[in-house]
Simulated scan of single mutants.
Amino acid sequence: MTIPPPDGPPSGMSRREWREQQEQPAPETAAAPATIATADDSLTILTVCTGNICRSPLAEVLLRQRLEALGVRVHSAGTHALEGHGMPEEALELAARAGADPAAAAAHRARYLVEPYLADADLVLTMAREHRSAVVKMMPGALRRTFTLREFARLASTLSTEEAQEAARQSDGSPRDRFTAVLRAVGEQRGLTPAPPEDDDVIDPYRRSRETYALSAAQLTPALDEVERIVRAALR
């Protein structure tokens, strides 16, 4: 999604609504995300896109479906969120088709990315490089645990499950410590598996054709397989 220019609102929003939104200060704190209750040492994954209505919530509900049995919390936010908006019909259809809980997808409401979400996350998966840059600018300390989704999948694919499990065993600590060790191994692959920069982005389908929504999902869903594999290897 293109970030709206500073002198006008995005499509679908009146100039008055946009002006009022711009005048509101960013929240210092945020309500706890609607995820399962877990222990303090459980993992938290945050997915990020622009409006938080298409790509990041699709990744959120699909990852939650795959990982909630392991006690992993998954939630999402947007750098320029259409706050309070739900997922569009096309995204809801893709979520259901990919096996997500339709009720969970329908319940999603967009929210702004704020620092507490980043501080709480063990892994931040952004949908494009622009979102990764926004995350690191907001919280430089999150650099080593922030990847675009497709970047993470590309790097993780160079590690076998056995290598990931060995990295986790080197920690011999809590689930969070084990995951941090595996994440470090994934990060060390940066620079070793070059790819065209645009290959690390998931295309934004907002206000575009159903074919574009399908392409976006086709880029996003296989990358989630690698995220799931790495998380399971860390927690095994």
Rank of each mutant, 00 (worst) to 15 (best):
G99H: 02
Q165P: 02
E151I: 01
R150A: 04
L82W: 15
A77Y: 03
L149D: 06
E89N: 12
T158Q: 08
R109G: 03
Q65F: 11
Q65H: 14
L123F: 14
R73C: 03
E162F: 11
V74P: 10
A95E: 02
V72C: 09
R73V: 02
T146M: 02
S157C: 07
M138H: 11
A128N: 05
A96C: 05
L159W: 05
A81P: 12
A100M: 05
R144E: 12
R154T: 08
V135G: 15
H85R: 10
V72K: 07
H85N: 12
E90P: 06
F147S: 10
E130M: 10
G71R: 14
A142D: 07
E89T: 15
A121W: 01
R66W: 14
G84E: 03
A119G: 10
P140Q: 09
L113D: 01
E115N: 02
Q65L: 10
T126Y: 14
L70I: 04
L92W: 06
E130N: 04
A95P: 03
M139I: 12
A110S: 10
A96Y: 00
R145C: 01
R129Y: 11
A110C: 04
E130F: 12
A103D: 12
L82H: 15
A107N: 10
R150C: 04
H80L: 08
E151W: 01
T161G: 13
R111P: 05
A142G: 05
T158V: 06
E151K: 00
R73W: 02
M87G: 09
A164F: 00
A119E: 15
P116R: 02
G99N: 04
A107C: 08
